[in-house]
Amino acid sequence: MPDFDLEAVTRQLRDAGCVFAEDEARLLVDAAGSPAELAGLIARRVAGTPLEYVLGWAEFNGLRVRVRPGVFVPRRRSALLVAEAAALARGNPPHTVVDLCCGSGALGLALIDELATGSDPLPDLFAADIDPVAVDCARENLADIGGRVYQGDLFDALPREIRGQVDLLLANTPYVPSEYIARMPPEARDHEPSTALDGGPDGLDLARRTATAAPAWLAPGGSLLIEIGVDQIPSATAVLTECGFSVRIADSPELGATVAVGTLPPATSGR
Score class of each variant (00 low, 15 high):
M1P: 09
M1S: 14
P2Q: 10
P2M: 08
D5L: 07
V9C: 05
L13T: 03
R14C: 04
D15Y: 01
V19E: 13
F20G: 01
R26W: 08
L27R: 08
G33D: 15
P35S: 06
P35R: 04
A36L: 11
E37R: 14
L38H: 12
R44H: 03
A47Y: 13
L55G: 03
L55P: 08
F60I: 04
R66H: 13
P69T: 00
F72W: 02
R76F: 11
R77N: 07
R77M: 03
L80G: 02
L81P: 06
A83E: 12
E84Q: 14
A85W: 15
A86M: 05
R90W: 13
R90V: 05
P94K: 01
H95G: 04
T96C: 14
V97P: 03
D99S: 04
L100F: 02
G103S: 10
G105T: 09
L107S: 02
L109A: 11
A110K: 00
I112K: 06
D113R: 14
E114L: 11
T117Y: 10
P121M: 14
P121F: 12
P123D: 08
D124P: 01
L125Q: 03
L125F: 03
A134E: 09
A134C: 06
A138C: 10
A138T: 13
A143Y: 15
I145K: 01
G152M: 15
F155I: 05
I162S: 01
G164S: 10
V166H: 02
L169Q: 00
T173Y: 04
E179V: 11
E179G: 10
A182F: 10
R183A: 13
E187T: 11
G199N: 08
A207P: 02
A211P: 00
P215T: 15
A219N: 04
A219H: 06
L224P: 02
L225T: 05
L225D: 02
I226E: 08
Q232F: 00
P234C: 04
T237L: 03
T237H: 07
S246W: 12
A250N: 06
P253L: 09
E254S: 15
G256C: 11
G256I: 08
T263P: 04
T268Q: 07
